[in-house]
Simulated scan of single mutants.
Amino acid sequence: MAATDLSHAHPLLQVSDLAKRYGEAEAQSTVFEQVSCEIAAGEFVAIVGNSGVGKSTFLNCLAGLDSWQQGQVLHQGVDLSTLNEAQRAIWRRAHLGFVFQAFHVLPHLDVTQNVALPLMLLGRMHDGGEQRVQQLLQAVGLQGLGPRLPQQLSGGQLQRVAIARALVHSPPLLLADEPTGNLDPSTAQQILDLLLAQTREQGTALVLVTHSGEAAKRADRVLRLTAVGMQTQETAAST
């Protein structure tokens, strides 16, 4: 697959000299620092790196779920560090889809309700929302499982609920933390197809953390996160 030419696209997301540290003063431990990158609308970027380097933490920073000690995260020119917690929550609701590695589905809601939650929060259930939910349940292979509660599902099925929920409101920014990690190869391929379709058809910027070489090969760019920055890594899609 040829890479999409986004060299002239205005960045949707800009990360400048980002540093994440834990602890106080001289006892601080650095997770990563000097991390800079830009992500364009409609671009699929894979983030790779050694275990423990902070890939999930980096995604949490991009989502405004975690704080950082240096640098900026700008979304369409808005500096997330200037927003308070309530403002960040409102921003996430409107602009972000997040596939968590630990799923974070709500145990008291059934599958349909979990997937529909972003639309409900945005007041969009009466604007084709129910049809959109059913379309996504079918797209991720969960048709007929809408009435089930999360405790009645397997890990792979929970992963697909999380993916459908992240996609349902067609967010301009989609962050995914190992979204195919609990899936068999065939289903993983199906999910990657769905994520890529969202990116191409709706101009969504997709940032995907992965250890899967197959997933990384499909990205427009592969960025390797290290403790001292972000490096571009060649991928089959760019050759």
Rank of each mutant, 00 (worst) to 15 (best):
residue 114 N to I: 13
residue 70 Q to D: 13
residue 109 L to K: 02
residue 95 H to G: 00
residue 60 N to C: 04
residue 85 E to S: 12
residue 96 L to T: 05
residue 121 L to Q: 10
residue 81 S to T: 09
residue 58 F to V: 08
residue 116 A to W: 12
residue 111 V to E: 04
residue 80 L to M: 11
residue 72 Q to P: 00
residue 115 V to F: 11
residue 83 L to S: 07
residue 66 D to V: 06
residue 96 L to Y: 10
residue 120 M to W: 14
residue 71 G to Q: 05
residue 103 F to I: 01
residue 97 G to N: 03
residue 116 A to D: 14
residue 79 D to E: 11
residue 76 Q to P: 00
residue 111 V to L: 05
residue 129 G to L: 02
residue 66 D to K: 03
residue 124 R to H: 14
residue 64 G to N: 03
residue 123 G to N: 07
residue 65 L to P: 05
residue 120 M to P: 00
residue 122 L to H: 10
residue 63 A to W: 10
residue 95 H to W: 13
residue 93 R to P: 07
residue 130 E to R: 14
residue 62 L to M: 09
residue 129 G to A: 03
residue 125 M to P: 04
residue 127 D to K: 08
residue 76 Q to A: 15
residue 82 T to F: 05
residue 69 Q to P: 00
residue 126 H to A: 14
residue 116 A to K: 08
residue 120 M to H: 12
residue 65 L to Y: 13
residue 114 N to Y: 14
residue 118 P to Y: 11
residue 120 M to C: 06
residue 128 G to R: 01
residue 104 H to E: 13
residue 121 L to P: 00
residue 116 A to L: 10
residue 111 V to F: 10
residue 57 T to D: 04
residue 105 V to P: 05
residue 57 T to P: 03
residue 113 Q to N: 01
residue 83 L to R: 12
residue 102 A to I: 03
residue 120 M to D: 13
residue 74 L to E: 13
residue 113 Q to S: 10
residue 104 H to A: 10
residue 127 D to E: 15
residue 119 L to R: 05
residue 125 M to I: 08
residue 75 H to K: 04
residue 88 R to Q: 14
residue 60 N to V: 03
residue 83 L to F: 13
residue 122 L to N: 15
residue 62 L to H: 07
residue 117 L to P: 07
residue 117 L to W: 15
residue 58 F to S: 09
residue 72 Q to D: 14
residue 128 G to P: 01
residue 110 D to C: 14
residue 99 V to S: 05
residue 103 F to Q: 04
residue 72 Q to H: 15
residue 68 W to I: 07
residue 107 P to C: 10
residue 81 S to Y: 11
residue 57 T to V: 05
residue 118 P to N: 06
residue 118 P to S: 02
residue 127 D to G: 00
residue 86 A to M: 07
residue 96 L to H: 08
residue 62 L to F: 09
residue 76 Q to V: 07
residue 102 A to L: 06
